[in-house]
Each structure stands twice: as C-alpha cells, then as structure tokens.
Nucleic acid binder design. Structure first.
Lengths: 224, 224
DNA sequence: CGTTTTCATGACAGTTGTGTGACAAAACCC
DNA sequence: GGGTTTTGTCACACAACTGTCATGAAAACG
C-alpha cells in the first residue's frame, strides 16, 4: 500500500486531494502546516509527499529543505502559481516534480508512479559508525567486532542502529519499543532479552558490557 | 560533462534548445526523427533525453517505449500540447517528466538536474567489476567465473548488475523488484528464486554462497 | 539485614524467512 | 508450428528468529 502525505493549508483542496488519492488506491493523509507535515513525516514515513508552496508559517520551500535533510521521499510540489522562478526554486530546494493547480488526478497519479518507479536514490552511502572495536554499517547490514564480522538478526540490528543513532544517550525501554518495534505499548522485558542477546554477540565480556550498558531504572545506552 | 540528446523535428526549436542547453553548460546534440534519436542513443548514451511527442514516422510515445526497453536514461517530454491524456500516456510509456512548450530554459535545466539527482547514474561505459573470481562486464553483457564464461539469462544479468552496482550494500527484495523488474509491487519470492538460480551459476558452492549473500530480514548483497 | 525492585538469562513454542524443486505460461528461436 | 529456453508462481521443508515465561542474581531501599 502506497502512502501519500498531503501538506496543504486550504482545507477544501486538501480534502479533495485526499479523497481523490484514496479513490486511486493510495492511503492518504494530510497536514495543514509545514510543521505538522514535517512531524508526521518523521513519525510515519509516507512513500510520497505532496506539498503546497504557500503555507502559513514555514513556507513550502523551507518545508522541502528541512524534509530533505533526513528523508529521500519523492516530493511533489502542487502550487497555484505557474512561475518559472517558483519551479526552479522548488526543484533547487529538493523537490522532484512540480504541478500547477488545478491538478488532474490522473496526471498526479501517473507522476507519482513515475517517481516511485525511479525509486529512492540509494546514492548517499551511510558511513559506518565506530564504537571502539565495534563497527556498525547500516548500508552493508553488517556489524563487526575487532574487524570480525558478527551475525546479528534483523531485530538486533535495528536495535543496535537505534542505539547507535543516539550514541551516548540513554534510551528508555519504552522509547526503544516504540522506535524499534513500533509498539505503543508492550512488555518492556522484551527489550532486555534482545539487549542480552546482542551483548552475547558484540561484547567481549557479555557479563561486563563496555559498549551496550544498562542504566538501572532508565534504560540502555551505547557508548564508545 | 552532462550530455543531452534532443529529439525534435522542428529545426528551429531543436537548434534553439541545443544552443540554450550548451549555454547552461551541457553537451547537447539533436535528432530530427525518433529513429535517428534511438540510433544515436544506442550508439552514444546521453545522460538525459528530451523528446517531442509529435514526430514524423514513429511518434514520441513509441520512441520512449522503445528506448525504455534497454535504457534507463531520464527522459523528458517537451510537447506543445498541455493535455492530461498526453501527459499520462507519456509517463505511462516511461517518460520521467513532461514540460509544455515554450519551455523556460532555467526550468528545464533545474528539472534535468532534479532528474539526474534522483535517477540512476548509468553513465559512460562501465568497466568490468571483479568480485574475487567473479567478473561482470555490464557493457559486454558477460559474466565470468574463474575466467570461464558463464551463461546467465537477461533477468539474472540485470539482477547481478544491480547488485554489483551497489556492491557491499544490502538491497531489499522490494528495491530489487523495483530496480530490476520495474514492479512497484509484487511477490518478493520472485527475487529469491532468481537469486537462487544465479547462485547455481556464479557460486562455487551454491549452498554456501560467498559473493551473493543473504542478509536475513534485510535482503541480498554482493560482496568480494 | 530483609524486602522490594530491577535486570539477566536460559528454555521453549510459535512464527517468520528462506531455499528449492516442480510446473505452467510466456517468450524465443529455428 | 514445434521445440527450447526463460520466467514467474506455488508449495513444502527446514532453519532461524521472536516473544513469553520462569528463575535467580544484583542493586536499591528502608
């Protein structure tokens, strides 16, 4: 199922777009401001983003720039103005396509498909993160200890990446459940179990972990 | 240097586009018919192709379809008609963008840039890639193991090239489906089957692959 | 020092992911 | 047109992984 996020302040237009997109078989949801749109996209990544340029507060250009900082999602601008400067500026900001209102839903749908066909760029390789003798490369799906490849499972890998991303900071079990498993609620012991298994694999002495440490009452953190 | 091929029958418009593109720093060359355009693109791959829809003989849609059969180059349609049906049909045929004449050269340039940023970088002749005893020459369409030529099918070859292009990085089944088969959605098991067949051919011990490895829960990757 | 809370870990059963052989449809090639 | 190759679907088997639970150790608390 393909999810589309529509960032548009005009309620009528936004709802019309959402309905039309659902008609076309997409899962669509909206945001009335750039800030809300950015937040929703962070929390729940859509496969495509539609954004209006004229937004109250943060405008569309800035919205695109900020979203581009950590997201490769194809962004389509839907604007009322057919102005070359706007088009160029939007594409410069990181948009992938530009449509002028009123948009024909069939055209929109075809363009979304064309964009997805081309797929995510895959260009920027993520450098491996190093924690002492521990090495994590999300790109290669690999974990190494002292240069030796260590086999970790998908869940363990995600957990490790999450901890690595916030290296040095404590993450509560609740946060980890949320970020790694997507559980809003659940047994926190689950995290313990996976941390334990991870330690067996990545720590020289699993009983006295040096990298993946427990902060009693708080959670876990990964340190150098 | 970025090369652009302009397929457009109207001499005046073609020359104007070529001049404007060179002004923008591109290397640009033209073709007056679809047939000529296809031939030139086969002989000498441009990084971007601009196509007019109204062409004598083979029309633009057919031109795009034929070019798409064995080329991933970003194709931009430049048409006089601002008609949703045309737009949709062109995108369906495999175009990546659609501009209505008269085009603003700055906009065109920005769109070309956006396309390339997103698009694959299948530029220039690709040198043979070597993975231990495995050798892949995308240009020659050949695979060798220990110097011996190995017969692989077209699909297997594309799959292998895709993996080789991102050597060392995991590609999910979804990404492979999209990049090798062009499927937006589909049965991921299909990838397994072809990976399996490929292993039979390129791995010394297919049951214990050394190059084409599985990353459980993540996908496949090709490594040295 | 005893009690309570928090955490580590081994065992286990259910679930999921992957490899593979068989087969039919489609494409290709004389 | 008939035979061959290639492709995609399916089903099954097996291995790997996940989440739950129980138990006991360690730390915090009073």
């Amino acid at each position: 199922m393909t999810a589309v996020l529509v960032i548009e302040d005009d309620d009528r237009i936004r709802l019309a777009l959402l309905l039309a997109l659902e008609e076309e078989g997409y899962t669509a949801y909206g945001a009335a401001t750039a800030e809300e749109g950015l937040r929703r996209q962070r929390e729940n990544r859509a496969d495509n983003v539609l954004v209006d340029l004229m937004l109250p507060g943060l405008d569309g250009f800035e919205c695109i720039r900020q979203m581009r900082r950590d997201d490769d999602v194809p962004i389509v601008v839907v604007s009322a103005r057919d102005d070359t400067h706007d088009i160029v500026a939007a594409l410069e900001a990181g948009a992938d396509d530009y449509l002028v209102k009123p948009v024909a839903i069939k055209e929109l749908s075809a363009r979304l498909r064309a964009l997805r066909r081309r797929g995510r760029t895959l260009v920027a390789p993520v450098p491996a993160q190093v924690f002492g003798d521990l090495e994590i490369s999300p790109d290669a799906g690999e974990v190494r200890r002292a240069g030796q490849r260590v086999a970790v499972t998908r869940t363990e890998f995600r957990l490790l990446c999450e901890l690595a991303e916030h290296a040095g900071r404590v993450l509560s079990r609740q946060q980890l459940l949320q970020r790694v498993w997507g559980y809003d609620t659940g047994d926190e012991r689950l995290v313990d179990v996976h941390v334990g298994r991870l330690r067996q694999k990545i720590e020289a002495d699993p009983a006295n972990p040096r990298h993946l440490v427990t902060l009693r009452g708080l959670g876990y953190k990964l340190q150098r």
